[in-house]
Amino acid sequence: MPAHPLGPIRERFEKLAREGRTGFIPYVTAGYPSRVHTRQLLTGLVEAGADVIELGIPFSDPMADGPTIQRSSQGALAAGATVDMTLDLVGDLRSWSDIPIVIFSYLNPIYAQGIEDFLMLAADAGVNGILPTDLPVGADPDLEHQLRHSTLDLVRLVAPTTTPERVREIAAESEGFLYYIARTGVTGARSRLRRELAAEVSAVRSASYLPVAVGFGVSSPEHARAVARMADAVVVGSALVDSLDSEGVEGALRFARSLRAALDEGGTG
């Protein structure tokens, strides 16, 4: 804590702000299509200029996810992915990189480990934040308290349907950054962004001192450029998994580099 008064995630966003750059946060399903592929992908993403890694623990019933991440989750589980394996992947990456890592998960796989045990193991492995998809603010004060008082940042989601009062409440309860869901729906690549997005993101930014990342449906360098003008960071998940499916790890990394380049052109400056 004293070494990084803000924590590694906030430090990274501070650095981005100083440099006038927009953060790039790729999402990766742990263990898809295999542990070896995920390790290659994570290494390549750091080299491609990712600022934060969002590593997903696959879950059998991903109710907030569209077809792409349903498929990657099922594929990862079929290939033997577990929570332990996900944390091993974090440990591997942490052994040579200080990139902030956020675990993206449904509650049940974490709950099944025992919350306390999971938090300890995650911190040991080098995880910096946790983003539980199905734990909205106020759903379980005890658990939320436990997560907030761990060494991990508890990252919260804001949706287009969230009321302004609730946005402030969520901002007050969030750590690391706020994740703005770019559309009402599940994850998945989309051909276009919504017209209202810029105004919504601006409203969220004015309600919070935390950096705001935008995700869900950000699918192309053009989208990334557009989001770069409004947000502190962009999260790309399904589109990356799609390119992994069609073109393998090398293809996914090419796509990642094109996103990085687009963000740097788009700039917040």
């Binding site: 199905d134 909205p136 919260r156 989601l157 804001v158 949706a159 349907t161």
Partner: peptide, 12 residues
């Protein structure tokens, strides 16, 4: 019980 859902559903 409770309400363990994506944020999007909370207002509904």
């Amino acid at each position: 019980g409770g309400r363990y859902v994506p944020e999007t559903l909370i207002p509904a």
